[in-house]
Simulated assay, not measured.
Amino acid sequence: MQTVTTKRLKEILRAFKGKEMIVVGDIMLDHFIKGNVSRISPEAPVPVVAVNKEFFVAGGAGNVAVNLAVLGAKPILVSVVGRDAGGELLKDFLRKQNVDISGVAEDYDRPTTQKVRVMAEQQQIVRFDRESKHPVAHDAAATCMQRFNQAVKTAKGVILSDYGKGMLSDKNIKALIDACRKRKIPVCVDPKIDNFKKYKNITCMTPNTKEAWEGSGLAPKSGEEAMENLGQKILKMLNADSILITRSADGMSLFEKGKKKPVTVKATAREVFDVTGAGDTVISVFTLALACGAKLHEAAVLSNYAAGIVVGKSGTATVTPQEIEEVLA
């Protein structure tokens, strides 16, 4: 693998500022209720949580957009919410995070996707979800595509963040990818297994090891040879320019079209506290780096450093260019 200098990585980081990026996908409202447990309810054998903290953040594709904003880019989010209080809370949060929500449409026939987590100390007691997995209503989908077609004229990169909630349909997946290819801008995908094989002709897909095995249809095997065969199969299956498989403690493996051997990037995390949102950070930094002219292996190295930082934080976290620069020093 060609060595990537610290100087080059810092050049790429400094080019992040002001880059227009589009995120298309399923957004959700993550609602956290935190407290302490000191007794069991007399009504049922369940813990009583004395709440001392409650907050909302953007999840799914919304977290990808927030990651891009924190990195200094100008993210335009294309998605849907319901016409409800959750949708208003989510849009308000995103505005405050400097995310352009002009591409977020309201779908009257569905609720805003919400995941409510009740936590005692650092332990999750229960989670309950409000969601619809049906395709987005025709009018809302048309509004989203209209905004995308307008934004893609000046955007430098596109991320498709698929959580299987209906935003990314067979029809618009192809249209989105075709539009990016026509304008020669990178289009990278964080896949949902059900739609894995539909993302053909993309710049990159960033599955974790479990997603890669499930999406390929192969039975999981251990060893580097098995990993190489897996990456090459997915490359051919999707006719992708590259596949970046994230492998937790084993780092990342980058497969490029026309190259027999993958580039392996070793993990940089010193301490793993919470992996929540790490995949969002990886695809955000990786795609933004490509949008700034980075080569695939340069983008992989930079995103690996970012992931190493974010897994050392609690909750759905983000990372700043300054934090990445500090670990490069």
Score class of each variant (00 low, 15 high):
M1L: 13
E20A: 11
V24G: 05
D26V: 06
D30L: 05
P42R: 00
A44W: 09
P45L: 02
V51D: 07
A65F: 09
P75T: 02
P75Q: 10
V78M: 02
V81D: 01
G86A: 09
G87M: 00
L94N: 05
R95K: 15
V99H: 09
I101C: 06
I101T: 13
E106M: 13
Y108H: 14
R117Q: 00
Q122N: 01
Q124E: 03
R127N: 11
H134L: 14
V136A: 09
D139T: 11
A140K: 08
A142N: 11
F148W: 14
Q150P: 13
Q150H: 15
G164H: 11
K165V: 07
K165D: 14
G166F: 07
K171I: 14
A175T: 04
L176C: 03
D178I: 06
I185A: 13
P186S: 10
V187F: 08
F196I: 01
M205N: 04
T206A: 10
W213E: 05
K221L: 12
A226T: 00
M227N: 08
T246E: 14
F255P: 03
K259L: 11
K261D: 15
T264Y: 14
V275F: 10
A278N: 06
T281D: 07
V285N: 09
F286A: 04
T287L: 03
A289I: 06
A291D: 10
S303T: 04
S303G: 07
V310D: 07
V310Y: 06
I324R: 00
V327L: 12
V327Q: 05
V327A: 01
L328A: 12
